[in-house]
Simulated assay, not measured.
Amino acid sequence: MQKKDCFYLGKIVKKYSFKGEVILKLDTDSPEIYQDLDFVYIEKGKQLLPYFIESSSAPKADLLRVQFEDVYSEEDADAIVKCAVYLPLKFLPKLEKDQFYYHEIIGSTLHDERFGEVGKILGIDDSTPQPLFIVDHKGTEILIPMIDEFMVKIDKPNKTVVVNTPEGLIEMNLPE
């Protein structure tokens, strides 16, 4: 399985028991839908390797206590702690027409109703209180807030996102 065919589910954050159980911190708005998985892909080095789940439980909403097949000791668990966990894209819940997953709009062209074509969306920075589009504008990386009020249209098939930002917002990000 290749990473481009998967989405990031979370990270194994620590060992839970001496029997190889681990705690998986889920990075999702709907952790409950991932509590009965049969397998996940764990990133080791540059590869995604399948790990089959023997049992799991949810001690907290965003945590999953997992016993993987063939991981039965602390040493086995140590080998996967701090590893990223992925699932195939087909496991993502279907969204409404006006909703999107971040990976669906990366590479799209961002247009602003006032400014015109801003550039290609390189990624999304969701480490801030408000997620930001990271956009390449003629070699300059600019950040545009992903605020619902700014969003006009998301055209996933044509890889286009249209926004209507306040006057001057884009210009203040550009070099003089």
Rank of each mutant, 00 (worst) to 15 (best):
E43W: 02
D98T: 14
S57W: 11
H103Y: 14
I33R: 00
G168Y: 03
L95E: 05
K94Q: 13
K159T: 09
P145N: 02
C83H: 11
V13N: 05
V40T: 13
G10Q: 13
R114T: 12
V118T: 04
S108Q: 05
I121N: 03
K11P: 08
S73K: 10
F39D: 06
E96Q: 01
M151G: 01
M172A: 12
K14M: 11
E104R: 00
Y41D: 00
A79N: 08
L89S: 09
C83I: 04
A84V: 06
L64C: 01
P88W: 05
S127H: 02
F7T: 03
K25R: 14
I12F: 05
V81T: 07
Q35L: 15
S56D: 04
L169C: 13
D125L: 02
E54A: 12
E32N: 04
R114Q: 11
Y101R: 10
Q35H: 15
G168L: 03
D27S: 08
I12A: 14
N164V: 00
I42G: 01
V71K: 05
N164I: 01
G123S: 08
K60G: 08
D62G: 09
D98S: 05
V40S: 06
E149C: 14
V85E: 08
I42F: 12
L174A: 11
S17K: 08
K4Q: 12
E171C: 00
S57H: 02
P31N: 15
D5G: 15
Y8T: 09
T160F: 06
K94L: 08
Y101A: 09
I121A: 05
D148R: 01
A58H: 07
A79F: 03
Q47I: 08
I121W: 00
D62E: 07
T109D: 06
N164S: 13
E104M: 04
P31F: 00
Q130M: 15
Y86E: 00
D5I: 15
K97T: 13
E176G: 02
I144F: 00
E141A: 08
I147R: 15
Y51F: 11
P157K: 12
D76E: 14
E32T: 09
K120N: 00
K46T: 13
E149R: 05
P129S: 11
F133M: 03
D29Q: 09
Q2H: 10
D29T: 15
V161N: 15
L143M: 07
F68Y: 02
A77L: 02
I144H: 05
Q67Y: 14
E113M: 11
V66Y: 02
C6Q: 13
V81E: 13
E74M: 10
T165M: 05
D36R: 06
E171S: 07
N173A: 12
L89K: 14
E96R: 09
Q67G: 06
L174N: 08
H103L: 15
I12C: 01
Q35N: 07
C83M: 08
S55P: 13
D29N: 14
Y16T: 12
M1G: 09
D5W: 11
S56N: 00
K90I: 15
L63R: 04
S127Q: 04
A84S: 11
F39P: 01
D148E: 10
F91A: 07
I53M: 00
G107S: 04
F39S: 04
D29V: 08
E21I: 14
